[in-house]
Design a binder for these strands. Structure first.
Lengths: 355, 355
DNA sequence: CGCGCTTTTCAAAGCGCTTTGAGTGACAGC
DNA sequence: GCTGTCACTCAAAGCGCTTTGAAAAGCGCG
């Protein structure tokens, strides 16, 4: 009696034992489970029933080895010794992407890489056969990783775009230029002329484009951009607070501020309040809002006037597009431009005429 | 000449071709690369040199199949139809964990799972051989996943603990009870008697323990807990704002508030300011601070008085402990209790005597 | 009954690696 | 000169799956 127990404990539940239990060959069982037409409906039923009953799951490594496909998409996280910051939108992006992946039966793998080693890391990831495709996050202006991935020849898709890169690549991006142009125009229409931009790091492509939008709206309105009103750094709360505080102490302070994220906008608000001013009355604020689930922009009435675009949704779309590309290779990379909506909240108002 | 090019393009760089190029057997090459002593130093040098030159990386699936180890640790993300929220600490946690993983040569895989299907998901993940170990996030009181994982018998470690579970399991946790007890005591020592708790979801174990700490400090101070001052929900900004606003409208409003996260504390601050009050003077606030990289609690002087514990560090420790467990199986699961530090910022002050 | 034809099943090869058990020289000891 | 040891190296089996090429079974037909 003990021997039978040991038997069950030691016998792995793999294709071979399942086939033996069914008195069928591995071939037939495999085909039955993978929906091939060569197997009769009755047999298929029987096999599926047994697979469920014995809790059989094909070993993904063996499957991958045999098929050459891993059913995994990879993210490479640069360890960024320079910028210790973890992107706050990461969680929501991943949530969206993982939803789409789960739908298609894919997993996601995260690989951390020392800065500068990225080329090697990609090569290794692919050459090791760990992933079928890659999502490239946070492209910079003239992003070097794009040529690398193109050269390697693995399916990939970029979250954002990279100015200065001429070769083709697939991407999903928010129309950052247009949305910041609209936001800036919204402020000039309200009569503001001293408009500050508290941007993200301008080596990042998205920030670069936002600045473009900001500048072109100023130009439209006949306003000379003031370098003293343009700040650029990683979008933390502290940063939003510090820059706002400093600018509000200027002789000719801004009457309106554009912030690059909800997080830094919170810092902006804090500085405004510490200065004894009222947001929306004394200083107008518009922020970009990634529609993070833990940081919704207010309930019925948005707190901030904002350019809104769900990064979670973007994650889902990206993953879907990448998987589609993996499964149906096409010569033309596909692209998708998302438009941010401008939601009007309580943080903006007409410029004070006196000023 | 074309044929040779085609040759290089079509020949995969695997152990076999590498061995052929070196005029050695696959065995020797494999051993050389994996540091076995049976191979001469001269040969090893030659092999390593060639591996580098030809950009050879062993196929991880084949390696895993042969060794039975995936060198991957898994996270299962419940898709939580109920709580759509993506935990804002996710990003920092993952950053910490992935650092430790990278160090040890492990990757991390994320699998999204429908709520309730978790048992099946774990079983599948393991039975498919995709992971060597699992990190269990966000344990609830009486967490059902722990018995499941114990029964399956895969190495796992819990981020947090689960009250009500008697069987042994490994964990890393912050001493939530003690830290909230200290925080509450700090407030009672300042003379506060109307202290509100804006807690996380109390089905979550960490929130349950924090409430315990809060209650026992009140008891120490001879204060009867007022159910009207105890709120529990997911820790969003909106939630912190709404509950604070409502409580400040009470006939006998709180003079101090304990918040469960920086995010909800930001909402608390917003509500206080909207009510025309000053944080730290009219209403004291203490929050738990996970030391998120994008949401640091102030520069030199912390904005909030807070119980601080880096979730990024916790992620690193967890991953390390799990990997250690995978590589050196031990009967006793290991545990680690982290103590949060109480940092005193500008959000707390003595209770107004007049009230 | 043997012949094609389709339907259903199978044995075996192969994916890229590790690992076992064996084999080769070289060299010392008897 | 034969055996035992040591230092290297190798061919082949096996991990769990898919897939190819072939064979068996079922069936109607002359």
């Amino acid at each position: 009696m003990l021997s039978s127990e040991i038997q069950t404990a030691l016998t792995p539940m793999n294709l071979k034992t399942l086939a033996e239990k069914l008195n069928l060959s591995q071939t037939t069982v495999s085909r039955a489970l993978n929906g091939y037409p060569e197997v009769s409906e009755a047999t298929r039923q029987r096999v599926e029933e047994a697979a469920r009953r014995f809790n059989y799951h094909p070993n993904s490594r063996a499957k991958g080895l045999a098929t050459g496909r891993a059913r995994v998409i990879g993210h490479v996280i640069p360890s960024s010794t320079q910028h210790e910051m973890v992107n706050p939108i990461f969680g929501d992006f991943v949530a969206g992407a993982s939803e789409a992946c789960a739908q298609a039966g894919y997993d996601m793998i995260f690989s951390r890489v020392a800065d500068g080693d990225e080329a090697q890391a990609y090569r290794a990831l692919i050459s090791r056969g760990s992933v079928d495709g890659i999502i490239l996050q946070g492209p910079r202006v003239n992003e070097t990783r794009i040529p690398i991935l193109n050269e390697i020849g693995i399916p990939f898709i970029v979250h954002g775009r990279a100015s200065g890169i001429s070769q083709p690549y697939g991407w999903v991006d928010v129309n950052n230029k247009r949305s910041f142009q609209r936001a800036t125009r919204f402020l000039t229409d309200l009569g503001h002329r001293r408009i500050a931009l508290i941007n993200g790091l301008e080596t990042m492509d998205f920030a670069h484009r936002r600045r473009d939008g900001y500048l072109s709206a100023l130009r439209e309105a006949g306003i000379d951009p003031d370098p003293a009103l343009m700040r650029s750094a990683e979008m933390t709360e502290i940063y939003g607070h510090r820059e706002t505080r400093d600018m509000l102490r200027m002789d000719d302070p801004p009457t309106a501020i554009l912030a690059a994220s909800m997080i830094s906008a919170i810092g902006v608000r804090r500085a405004i309040e510490e200065a004894g001013l009222v947001m929306g009355r004394d200083v107008s604020v518009i922020t970009h809002d990634d529609d993070l689930s833990y940081l919704r922009n207010g309930g019925d009435v948005p707190i901030f006037t904002a350019t809104r675009s769900s990064v979670r949704r973007a994650g889902g779309i990206l993953a879907e597009m990448l998987i589609d590309r993996i499964e149906n290779p096409a010569p033309e990379p596909n692209r998708l431009m998302l438009e941010a909506e401008l939601v009007v909240g309580r943080s903006t108002g007409p410029a004070k005429t006196g000023h």
